[in-house]
Amino acid sequence: MSTTVTSPDDELQADFDALIEAEQRIEPRDWMPEAYRKTLIRQISQHAHSEIIGMQPEANWITRAPSLKRKAILMAKVQDEAGHGLYLYSAAQTLGIARDTMTEQLIEGRARYSSIFNYPTPTWADMGAIGWLVDGAAICNQVPLCRASYGPYGRAMVRICKEESFHQRQGFEILLELANGTPEQKQMAQDAVNRWYWPSLQMFGPPDDESPNSAQSMAWKIKRFSNDELRQRFVGMLVPQFEALGLECPDKDLRWNEETEQWDMGEIDWDEFFDVLKGHGHCNAQRLQHRRQAHEDGAWVREAAAEYARKQSAQLKAVA
């Protein structure tokens, strides 16, 4: 036995810190501080829930998509989101939480998901605005997560980002078609962009000086850029795309600042953000009810599958 005063936990912590410092990945069987595990479970499960709840606003238009090509693309996109939810739930499971537990947390209203999905999708143009703005913001957030220090999360994100890029592209294409279409279509596109622009900027989270968890996540190399940095990057990406679309940016105060070489944005309404977060968005109740209903309506099917599997394995054992 060593006579040093270092406790085993200190050694493990030192190994962990060294891995993080060396930009190595933490894998499921590696030791990790409990707070790191908890932060990841919270973040990854929230991300998974967001994918699953995020299916609803778009699923709303699958049956009414105005062309068969658009219907096929939209179905594929919403289906991708179910797939993303599955990879992310699997990544969270590697940290020791069961999928059933996460599902319960969601349908009982104890888990968070991205507030953006509490906005409604009243028109077809919302399919364009969600793809372009919401998936666009998600990509800005998620590309750096491909390098997140936790291996399963980073690897899930690589796959997800590839598909998100297709999602953003299809959203942009929907809006481009509308913006170049009839006057009613162009108005529909502008209205949808007006509704989704500010909420998409809020997706990066509160300003850096009001984001309590960010510093620790950055130290752990889960998060790589601050909320404000990512928001800035996103707006920089949108400006030329607004021009290409021929649509107006709803931020009338947006200006290029020669000195800082950044875009100065208008005021974001954080009261609205926190209001939606607290449950006062348009569709918070509807989103949860939809998920709960699907879960409850499907209970007999899941029970049947479990019972059938049990009988099958009992039969196999009897034969063996």
Binding site: L68, A72, M75, V78, Q79, A82, A294, D297
Partner: peptide, 25 residues
């Protein structure tokens, strides 16, 4: 297509969605 987001489990959202997409094709 109606089933997507309403299936008994996520795997079935995917499976029924896939079938719908194939049939649409």
């Amino acid at each position: 297509g109606w089933w997507i987001s309403r299936a008994p489990e996520l795997e079935e959202d995917l499976a029924l969605g896939n079938i719908a997409l194939d049939l649409l094709g």
